[in-house]
Amino acid sequence: MTFAQLLFGVFPYVAIILAVVGTFWRYWSDKFSYSSLSSQFLETKQLFWGSVPWHYGILVVLTGHLVAFLFPRSILGWNGVPIRLYILEGLALIFGILAVVGLALLIVRRLNNPRLWKVTSTMDVVLLLVLLAQVIAGVWTAIFYRWGSSWFAAFATPYLWSILKFQPDIALVSNMPWMVQTHIVGGFVLLALLPFTRLVHLLSFPYEYMWRPPQVVIWYRRSRLGGS
C-alpha cells in the first residue's frame, strides 16, 4: 500500500468512522458538552471582529463546497461564461479571506487574554491550528491553483463520491499539488476531530431559528405602566 493510498484511500474511512462513532459516543456519554463553550462574557470586543468574519466566511465557503459536491454539473454550467466564473471565484475568495482573517484574530485573542487561556483546552488549541492550516491551504489553492470551483466539480466531486461508493479513485487526487492534497486530507482530519472538539456545536446549533416564525419580545411599555 502506497502512502497516497493510505492518505486518500484509507484515511477518509478512518475519519468517517471516527466522526460517526465519536459523535454518538459523545452524545451518550456527555450530552451536555454538545456546544462550543462561549467566551463572550470574558471578552466581547475582539470576539466580534474574529467571530463574525470567521463564521460568515466559513459558512459561505463550506456551503460552496457542498453545492459543488451535490451539483457539479450546475457549477460547470454556471462557470461556462467567464464573467460568471470570475464572480463565483471572487465571492468565494472574499469569504475565504474573511475566514482566515477571522480565525487568525480569534487565535490572537485567545493567546493574548489570560482569562480566555484558562478556559482553553488542549483540543481547542489543536482544533484552532488545524482549522487555520485548512483555511490557509484553501485560500492558497484558490489563489495559486485557479479555478478551483471548476476543477473541484471535475476532480474532487467524483473523488468524494468514489469514497462514498467504497471504490476510492485516488488517481483523481494523487497528482494534485501538495497544497491541494493538504487541503483534502485536512478536511478529513477535521471530520475526525468533529466529535472530540468544540466543533460539535455544528450539530447542536439551533438551526430551526432559520425557519421558525419570528417571536416578538415586547417589554411592558412605560405608558401602560403609567396607566394613561
Binding site: 454539473r73 460547470l76 454550467g77 462557470n79 461556462g80 461564461v81 467567464p82 464573467i83 466564473l85 470570475y86 471565484e89 471572487g90 495559486f144 491553483y145 485557479r146 479555478w147 478551483g148 471548476s150 476543477w151 466539480a153 471535475a154 494534485m176 499539488p177 491541494v180
Partner: peptide, 30 residues
C-alpha cells in the same frame, strides 16, 4: 472557455489552463 460544453462531460479547459488572449481574470493555473 466552456461556452460550449464538451460532449462527453469533461470540464472546460479554462478550469485548469490559461491562454494569454483570455482577458478579465484569465484562465486556470492548476
Amino acid at each position: 472557455v466552456g461556452e460550449l460544453r464538451l460532449e462527453n462531460g469533461g470540464p472546460a479547459c479554462i478550469s485548469c489552463h490559461s491562454i494569454d488572449t483570455i482577458r478579465g481574470m484569465g484562465g486556470g493555473t492548476l
